Simulated scan of single mutants.
Amino acid sequence: MTTDANTLWYDEWASPVGVLRLVADDECLREIWFPHGRHRQLQPPHWRHAAEPLARARQQLEEYFAGTREQFDLPLRPIGTPFQREVWWELARIPYGATISYGELARRIGQPAAVRAVGAANGRNPLPIVLPCHRVIGSDGSLTGFGGGLPTKRFLLSLESRVALGDLFGVEQRAR
């Protein structure tokens, strides 16, 4: 496919949490949109529909939802401020099946007083699931805002905890 430097590819995939729109440039995954996302945008005219450029991302998401993938191995290019990108890259370090608070996330990036700014950056994460913002919860353990909605956040955390608990009992327990 011949494209110019501004072309972005998109495809839609029917996931267990609804139809996700995946967006990539010629080299990297750029965005994942939830069906009713809080920050959903209009589709720019330079976007082109094509499944092939997003096949690897779709496959890894399928494996994640099947419980067979705990880490993503995709080239990523989220667009944001330097602060937002710092927060988003730290999200990738939260272990599968674990949760941390917004305060802990702020401490991990060396800015413990920036809890609200961290929360705002987390809420603007353009690559949810892959950069797992759903693993960030309130300091009291409550589920707080999530771009895909709290039911989706609850589903993702439940999926990860079921798979992680299954590992305690071995692969045979998970297969039942």
Rank of each mutant, 00 (worst) to 15 (best):
L91E: 10
W88T: 06
L61P: 02
E31T: 10
V87M: 14
L20S: 04
V17M: 07
F34C: 02
T81V: 08
P53Q: 01
G67I: 06
L54Q: 05
V87G: 12
Y64M: 01
R85Q: 15
D73Y: 05
G37S: 09
A66L: 07
C28R: 15
V23S: 08
R56S: 12
G37Q: 07
F65K: 04
W89D: 10
Q84P: 07
A57R: 03
H39T: 10
R85S: 14
F72S: 00
E27P: 02
R77M: 09
A50C: 03
A51H: 11
F34K: 05
T81P: 02
H36L: 11
R38T: 15
W47D: 10
T81N: 06
E63R: 10
I32P: 00
R48H: 12
F65R: 04
A51Y: 05
L74Q: 02
R58M: 00
A50M: 04
E63Q: 14
L29W: 04
E63L: 06
Q43V: 11
P44E: 06
A24L: 05
V87Q: 09
E86L: 14
Q60G: 08
E70L: 04
P35R: 14
H46A: 14
P82Q: 02
R40P: 04
R69M: 03
R58C: 05
R38M: 13
G37P: 00
L42G: 14
F72R: 01
S15D: 06
W88V: 11
G18N: 11
F34G: 11
E70D: 10
W47Y: 15
D73R: 10
A55M: 09
I79M: 13
F72C: 07
R40W: 06
E90T: 14
E62R: 10
V17E: 05
H36I: 06
R69D: 03
E27N: 14
Q41P: 00
G18V: 05
L76C: 09
R21P: 09
A24W: 05
A55R: 12
A50Q: 07
H49T: 08
Q41T: 12
P35A: 15
W47K: 01
E31A: 13
V19S: 12
E90Q: 15
S15I: 04
L54E: 00
A66I: 02
F83G: 07
R30P: 03
V23R: 11
L22T: 01
Q43K: 13
P45Y: 00
H49V: 08
P75I: 04
R58V: 13
A24F: 08
P75R: 09
F34H: 10
C28V: 01
R56W: 01
G18Q: 08
E90S: 13
E86K: 13
L61M: 02
Y64S: 00
R56H: 14
R40D: 13
A66H: 04
E63D: 13
R30K: 14
P44A: 07
E31G: 02
P75D: 07
Y64T: 01
G37N: 07
E27T: 14
R69N: 07
W33N: 12
A24S: 15
P35M: 09
H49N: 07
R30L: 09
R40Q: 13
L61C: 06
P82A: 13
W88K: 03
P16S: 00
E70K: 01
T68N: 01
Q71L: 08
R30H: 11
F65G: 03
L29Q: 05
Y64W: 01
L76H: 12
R77K: 13
F65N: 00
D25T: 11
